[in-house]
């Protein structure tokens, strides 16, 4: 689970190494990645919205 989250976060940055990728693609289930990615994206939206609301004062 943690490794899936880590990979998704790495994707968000756009950086990933080959070893981790090998592992993702041989062990991970795609559904887990997709769900995690969508959840992480939503959290990212909330975070960004939070910052925007804070900055707007």
């Amino acid at each position: 689970m943690w490794s899936v989250v880590k990979s998704v976060l790495a994707a968000l940055l756009g950086v990933q190494n080959d070893r981790q990728r090998q592992q993702d693609f041989s062990n991970g289930k795609p559904v887990a990645f997709i769900i995690t990615a969508v959840v992480v994206t939503m959290m990212f939206v909330l975070l960004l919205a939070g910052i925007a609301i804070y900055a707007a004062g």
Binding site: A10, N17, D18, F44, L48
Partner: peptide, 18 residues
């Protein structure tokens, strides 16, 4: 950075909705 490229493409796709 083949791996990074793949992941970055995914990230761009998701961010493109935002």
């Amino acid at each position: 950075g083949y791996a990074s490229m793949v992941y970055a493409t995914g990230a761009i796709a998701l961010l493109s909705f935002l």
